[in-house]
Simulated scan of single mutants.
Amino acid sequence: MRKLISVLMTLLLMVLMVPSAFAEKNPSGPPKMEPAKYQIPSSVRSITKENTYPNSTQDLPYLQPSELTKKLINSSNVKIENPDLIRMLNESSINSTPFAVGYRAIVYLGQWALNYESSETSPNWEYQKINTNYYDNRGGNTPYRIKYVQESQKIVRGGLTSKITNAEEVKKMMLLKAMKKTNLPLSFDTVIGAGTKNDHFYNIPAKRLGYLYAYAPAISEKGKVTYGEVYLMLKGNRKFIVIKNVTSQGIGAWIPVQDYVSFGFVASERPR
């Protein structure tokens, strides 16, 4: 008799939890960006068309939660925004059955970075110097025009400002928030190809040395990430999520702006 009950319970568990392996992507695409809270300075110019290195657009997992996932997220006592956790929930289904009366199960889904709350998003237009164009016009009698030409390929990398658990998940959430707040093309890695040019010119007066500096801009993103242990609770036909051992940690990141360059020009009597 005990063996028969054990077999029946095993079959019931198999019926209740069946993987569906279908992640639903948002058919309407990424959420709309909010207007930037600041103006891009005139010294910052787009090189999207001129960049000799074709940066790929940052592919972020904009996922639309399934109906089941929405119900589970709404049942949680802590806000869930982690796209990787949402994807995992999307890839599972829990089927109801009339024989589930009195059934109870607790499934531990692991410790997750649940959400990221942004507190400060600010630009640094001169995050990293990437190039210097130079011309000596001290022997000239008329102004000399100088333009930006990238002398060598430059890789600009951002990253988190400190070590943190589930770093890749946290970076995704921070990137999503920063892109929405700035309406700028952001990526933790961007490349400016050798030979990249810009048509804007600068006049070096006669009897002067001219220096045209180029910088890669980046966004400073700061906020708080919340962690917790995620449990899926099954009680009869009820399904809900419980978060335990919730902790929070402050975190910051530098996120480069793709295909934008900030310029600074100096005319000097002496070498710099």
Score class of each variant (00 low, 15 high):
177 K>A: 11
129 K>P: 00
132 T>W: 00
160 L>S: 05
154 K>I: 06
221 E>G: 00
186 L>R: 11
221 E>M: 10
162 S>E: 15
151 E>K: 14
129 K>W: 00
177 K>R: 06
161 T>S: 11
147 K>Q: 14
155 I>L: 07
155 I>M: 10
161 T>Q: 11
151 E>P: 00
187 S>M: 09
137 N>E: 15
137 N>G: 06
214 A>M: 04
205 P>E: 10
180 K>Q: 14
139 G>H: 01
161 T>G: 09
229 E>T: 03
127 Y>I: 00
181 K>I: 15
230 V>C: 01
205 P>G: 11
220 S>R: 10
216 A>L: 10
209 L>D: 08
142 T>P: 00
156 V>S: 04
190 T>Y: 06
161 T>K: 07
197 K>F: 08
168 E>I: 06
208 R>T: 13
190 T>A: 08
137 N>L: 04
189 D>Q: 14
156 V>N: 01
145 R>D: 14
234 L>A: 11
239 K>R: 07
149 V>L: 13
128 Q>R: 03
138 R>W: 02
212 L>W: 01
190 T>C: 10
223 G>E: 12
131 N>A: 04
174 M>V: 04
200 H>P: 00
180 K>A: 11
195 G>P: 13
165 T>Y: 07
221 E>I: 01
198 N>L: 11
203 N>D: 14
184 L>P: 13
165 T>C: 03
159 G>Y: 04
197 K>V: 13
210 G>L: 06
194 A>Q: 15
238 R>S: 14
187 S>Q: 08
232 L>G: 02
140 G>N: 08
213 Y>D: 15
167 A>S: 13
163 K>P: 03
